[in-house]
Write a protein that binds this DNA or RNA. Structure first.
Lengths: 112, 112
DNA sequence: AATACAGGTAGTTTTTAAGATACTTACTTT
DNA sequence: AAAGTAAGTATCTTAAAAACTACCTGTATT
């Protein structure tokens, strides 16, 4: 797929980064790439996130249909978050980000 | 290249998004993918950015060695910004972002 | 009976990013 | 001589993102 309209193409960068950017969204999506996770599992792997922030981010990702919330069991309550079918499409992008990051960290993440 | 350490891999997502994320960095890098641009060219294509923000973002991108500032001519002053050799490596990532965005915009950017 | 876990919500405060406004130096054009 | 261009800098303010603290319902554990 070629980029037809360059201006349009470049604006879309900002839109995508709105979804995947910020402090937590990319990481949440990355964790959900592997397999579905429960609220507290996410909270544990994202060790510094607070409940309220995690809730907000998950609700946003639900709103844009990237993630779905599934109540697995009512009592005791088990809730699972997973990528939607559509959300799965982000996997390759996340993979590209991770690969670039691992390859270039030595140069670029050096805060001297 | 396979991701060896998953935890490490996922943290790197946040580091990369720090470089490419925010309101302007991704767009600046995207514009510089095509060819070098002068300060005011960038200011024009990023139509809503202010001088001070553009300067800040460019200095940051210089600091991390993604972009270099080159004085082409002292008088009258001509300054050009271009991707460093290392910065060029971001092109594929930007391309992946643009392609994902163009393909999925209909579903995901719909704010109803 | 008390404590802890699961999955949150509500309200406030702090931090960070971005924007607004004004000004600068050195040159060039009218 | 005045105005305009190029490439910025310096402050200050605003807005948005994230954090902090406390609390809630229902179940399970000690």
């Amino acid at each position: 797929m070629e980029v037809k309209n360059k201006q349009q193409g470049i604006k879309v960068v900002a839109d995508v980064l709105d979804i995947v950017g910020g402090k937590w969204r990319g990481q949440i999506l990355a964790h959900l790439c592997d397999n579905p996770k429960r609220f507290n599992e996410l909270k544990t792997v994202l060790s510094r996130i607070t409940s309220s922030t995690l809730t907000k981010e998950l609700r946003y990702l639900e709103d844009i249909k990237m993630v779905e919330r599934k109540i697995i069991q009512e009592t005791p309550m088990i809730v699972e978050y997973r990528l939607t079918k559509h959300g799965m499409s982000i996997k390759d992008l996340i993979k590209t980000i991770v690969e670039w990051g691992l390859k270039h960290r030595a140069i670029v993440f050096k805060k001297d």
